[in-house]
Every structure is written in structure tokens, then in C-alpha cells.
């Protein structure tokens, strides 16, 4: 059937959450990786191969993943509403860090307008009201542009409107696509694949860069990124997405291998660009991390930067090819 992914047939609950084989595979694989990483660190610690500083750092990072993974995978498995709620919360957390890093938080009115926009666009996703959902991007653009005019304070106008528009684009309109995907009844394996592929993309870039990296890609933006790392991540992620998404897209217009390879390229390229975008923001501000909430990772944005551009790019590609999220019922709340 075109237009939707495989519709779950199990009754709502635990059985439905894990019905799709790709869902099972991804959950088992991520838990497996976490357990394996812990065992390796434990082995290194017991054989005294690592010093106390590195040991602490490794445990902190692994521990942070141990908290993050259930928070990321749990809502997706739990259902549509949970997924959209989690994306809303993620958007608000990202906005908070961005506000404090750029200084936009001092503009209480505009910071509030952007937060309102994030709530509205996620509400439109929850309502499954595509017309309102896409209308919010231009409408919020207008609201952000006019909100501070009555304050009669033209100094800094372009800067605050620019910062606020950028914020809504990234954490509202852009990120909310991830939640909107949950309007497709078979969204679980797809969203899980995106979450894990984006994380793997980062890991692959890091690993290939360490192993083969010589030439730096954009040294002024991000001194640790190499061309070898970028190409290695592109190859790994493209192949992984193309391979794993086979059973997800069986029977849809996305079934042909070349389309799934294109999807993989989109995920990898948009993921890496999202990373470089945050690096550009941080370099311009002269800061290292956006926050401190995730030990070993930095802020929420430092962890989820890659998702910001992947979500809208993947959604609109899939909507174009197979009408993802177009099947009813629509306007569940506003009727």
C-alpha cells in the first residue's frame, strides 16, 4: 500500500511497540552496544589499562547514554503522543540553551514568542493538521518580525529578529518534523532508524577521522573534523540506512534500493551539516559547549545538533516519494 508504512496489527501496548522486526533489531542493537561498552570499560578498569581520569570520563559518557537512550527510545516505542511530547520537550531544551548562548534570552518577549511557536507547531503535529503545520513557518516569521515593534526600540532589531527566526526554524519548524512522522501508523522503526543512524553517523565520522584522517575539512569551523571522517561516515550511514530501511519500506514507493541509498545520503549529509552548523554557531560565540546537562557530551544541543537538519530533509523527501504522513485521520483535536 502506498502512503503509509506497514500498519501495526497487534493490540496497543507492549506487543505493538515491538511488533516490527526492525524495531526489535534496533532496540536490541543499541542496548547491546551500551552493555558491550560497559563491559569493555569494566575490563580495562579491572586490568588497570586506563587511568582514573579517563575511567571517570568513560563512565560518565556511558552513564549519560544510559539515561539518554531510554529517554529517546522510550517515547518512540510508547506511541504517537509520547513521541510528539518528547520532540516538543527537546525543542524547548534546545531553545533554552540557544537563548542563553546567543543572548536572545534577554529579549523576554521574543524568547517567549519562539517558545510559543514551538508549542504551536508541535500541537499542529499532534492534531495531524498539515495545513496549519506548514502555515506556521511563514506565520511565525511574521509574528517574530512584528512582536517587538510596539516596544519602539529599533536598536538591535535585525539581530534579535534574526536570532529568533533562526531559533524557530531549527527547534520549532525543523525539529517538529520528527514528531510529525509519528502520524504514520508504522512510524516506530523509521524514527528509531533516524535516531540511531544520526548517532552512528557521528561515531563513524569520529572513528574514520581517527584512523585515516589527514586533511582537515573546515579547520576554522571545527578543527577535529577530517575529510576521511566525513567520507567514512557518508559511506557507513548510507549503507546502513539503505540496508535497514528495506523491511520498513517494503510495499511502498520507497522500496527501490536506489531511493533508499538517496535517503541514506540525505541522513548522513544533513547530519554532518547540522553538526557543522552548531560548530559555526559556537565558534562565532566563542564558546566550547552549549551547556553542561549531559556529562561528557556538553549540552542537549551538542548531542542533538545532527537531528535538526535531518528531520525536515528526510520528512519532505519521504513525503514527496511516498506521501508519508498524508493518510488520515486528520485534525484529531480541532476536528
Amino acid at each position: 500500500m502506498n502512503g503509509t508504512l506497514a500498519i501495526p496489527t497487534a493490540p496497543p501496548g507492549f506487543g505493538r511497540a515491538f511488533e516490527h522486526p526492525v524495531t526489535q533489531g534496533i532496540v536490541i542493537a543499541t542496548v547491546g552496544v551500551l552493555v558491550a561498552a560497559s563491559l569493555i570499560i569494566l575490563a580495562l578498569q579491572l586490568t588497570h589499562r586506563i587511568g582514573p581520569a579517563l575511567r571517570k570520563e568513560l563512565w560518565l559518557r556511558t552513564g549519560a547514554w544510559g539515561v539518554l537512550l531510554p529517554l529517546m527510545l522510550g517515547p518512540v516505542l510508547a506511541g504517537r503522543e509520547w513521541t510528539i511530547a518528547a520532540v516538543t520537550l527537546l525543542g524547548i531544551f534546545c531553545l533554552r540553551e540557544y537563548d542563553r548562548a546567543t543572548g536572545l534570552f534577554r529579549e523576554y518577549l521574543l524568547a517567549g514568542v519562539v517558545a510559543l511557536g514551538i508549542l504551536l507547531v508541535n500541537f499542529a503535529a499532534l492534531d495531524h493538521w498539515y495545513g496549519f503545520y506548514v502555515a506556521l513557518w511563514p506565520l511565525m516569521g511574521v509574528l517574530i518580525a512584528v512582536a517587538t515593534i510596539p516596544q519602539d526600540r529599533p536598536e538591535g532589531y535585525i539581530q534579535r529578529v534574526g536570532l529568533a527566526t533562526f531559533a524557530f526554524m531549527l527547534f520549532g519548524a525543523g525539529l517538529a518534523h520528527l514528531g510529525y512522522m509519528a502520524n504514520d501508523p508504522g512510524y516506530r522503526p523509521l524514527v528509531l532508524l533516524l535516531l540511531t543512524a544520526v548517532a552512528l553517523n557521528d561515531v563513524a565520522a569520529f572513528t574514520f577521522g581517527k584512523l585515516f584522517g589527514r586533511r582537515k575539512m573546515l579547520p576554522a569551523t571545527s578543527p577535529n573534523k577530517t575529510i576521511a571522517g566525513a567520507l567514512g561516515a557518508l559511506t557507513t550511514t548510507t549503507l546502513l540506512v539503505a540496508f535497514v530501511s528495506g523491511p520498513i519500506f517494503a510495499g511502498t514507493a520507497m522500496e527501490p534500493l536506489w531511493l533508499r541509498l538517496v535517503l541514506g545520503v540525505i541522513v548522513s549529509v544533513a547530519g554532518q551539516l547540522g553538526d557543522l552548523m552548531l560548530s559555526s554557531i559556537k565558534r562565532d560565540l566563542g564558546i566550547k559547549d552549549m551547556g553542561t546537562v549531559l556529562p561528557g557530551h556538553g549540552g542537549v544541543l551538542d548531542r542533538f545538533n545532527s537531528l535538526l537538519l535531518v528531520s525536515p530533509a528526510v520528512f519532505h523527501f519521504l513525503r514527496w516519494i511516498m506521501d508519508l504522513g498524508a493518510a488520515g485521520p486528520h485534525r484529531l483535536i480541532t476536528g
Binding site: R100, E155, L285, T292
Partner: peptide, 16 residues
Amino acid sequence: MKWELRPARDLGLSPM
């Protein structure tokens, strides 16, 4: 026109 990006004074501190 003055472009000025001024991060929060408390940026980078742990919550406590």
C-alpha cells in the same frame, strides 16, 4: 548598528 552576541554570564556553569 551594533551587533553584539553576549552569552549569559553564567554560561557553562553546572546547575548548582
